[in-house]
């Protein structure tokens, strides 16, 4: 049994939130820069250039890449032989959110009651935490602050088996078409296929933070990712939605076994401010 203190986790999550909010990943930066080379629309190229400048300013000055510093989504993979000591794990995570959003000049965008008072919690808590118990004695932490311009354009549909590959492609492409300029294209398209309704949504969210350099390990799905990406980039929406050939940087698919009667498909869109940071304790 390995002991990991709640305080160690708090400190690590704090650092990851700031890192994600200020420093865009090299894979995203590279993808935007390659898109600029290829973009035929002059206005689209100008937008991509602004995004690259923006990444650089945020990195240099340690300021938020985007003012919507999101809800703080945290994926935890906890080894079954790890033991959290010296406090409540969830409290440690929320303390990290409180501290990072307050001390790091990040916007507080969370309201306590979703329907009636909608009163801001003033420290961006609570975090949205997804925990999995895995073999081993490490704790794997992925922090992915999620802005709502793109979150609001996300969709889920319970397809039926007869819808087949075409049904999946049409649904994903249509989600991006309907979203148009709203989710700040170029987007990263996280797709979850299979499992149950909530299982598909969770896979889609996880896929918004997959490295852009790593396609789906199953060649059939890697091919499907490319097929969908090609169709999305033929929509003409372009950078910032004002016309162009780069509407999405990547389509990332994750699958899971599902029921004989179903084929849930979830699409979680993530903007070009695709922020995430990862560490293993």
């Amino acid at each position: 049994m390995r002991q990991i203190s709640a305080e160690t986790i708090r400190k690590k999550v704090y650092d990851l939130i700031l890192q994600a909010s200020y420093h865009i990943g090299d894979d995203v930066c590279r993808a935007v820069s390659e898109a600029r080379e290829k973009e035929p629309s002059p206005a689209g190229r100008a937008v991509l250039g602004q995004l690259l400048d923006n990444y650089a300013i945020a990195r240099e000055e340690n300021v938020a890449i985007c003012q919507d510093t999101g809800m703080c989504v945290i994926f935890l993979e906890i080894g079954q032989d790890a033991h959290v000591t010296g406090g409540d794990l969830n409290e440690a995570l929320n303390q990290a959110v409180h501290d990072a959003y307050t001390e790091g000049y990040l916007r507080k965008s969370v309201v306590r009651d979703p329907l009636y008072q909608r009163e801001n919690t003033r420290d961006n808590t609570p975090a949205v935490v997804h925990t999995r118990i895995v073999p081993g004695e490490n704790i794997d932490i992925l922090v992915t602050p999620k802005g709502f311009g793109s979150e609001n354009m996300s969709r889920i549909k319970m397809l039926v088996p007869a819808d087949g590959e075409q049904g999946v492609i049409d649904f994903v492409v249509d989600a991006v078409r309907q979203a148009g300029p709203n989710p700040c294209p170029p987007v990263i398209v996280g797709v979850g296929i299979g499992s149950t309704m909530e299982g598909a949504a969770l896979m889609a969210k996880r896929m918004t933070a997959r490295s852009l350099d790593a396609p789906n390990p199953d060649p059939r799905y890697a091919e499907l990712e490319q097929k969908i990406l090609k169709r999305i980039n033929a929509l003409g929406i372009g950078p910032a939605g004002i016309g162009g050939r780069c509407t999405a940087l990547a389509v990332n698919i994750m699958t899971a076994p599902t029921h004989i009667a179903g084929m849930p498909v979830a699409v979680n869109l993530c903007c070009h401010a695709a922020r995430h940071a990862h560490a293993v304790l």
């Binding site: 035929p40 629309s41 206005a43 689209g44 075409q166 492609i169 049409d170 492409v173 078409r177 148009g180 300029p181 097929k227 090609k230 169709r231 999305i232 033929a234 929509l235 003409g236 929406i237 372009g238 939605g241 004002i242 016309g243 162009g244 050939r245």
Partner: peptide
Amino acid sequence: NLYEIGPKQYQTEEQNG
């Protein structure tokens, strides 16, 4: 509306698969 005019210039038939 630039959101209509702009994308029209860059969309292709490939969007329909």
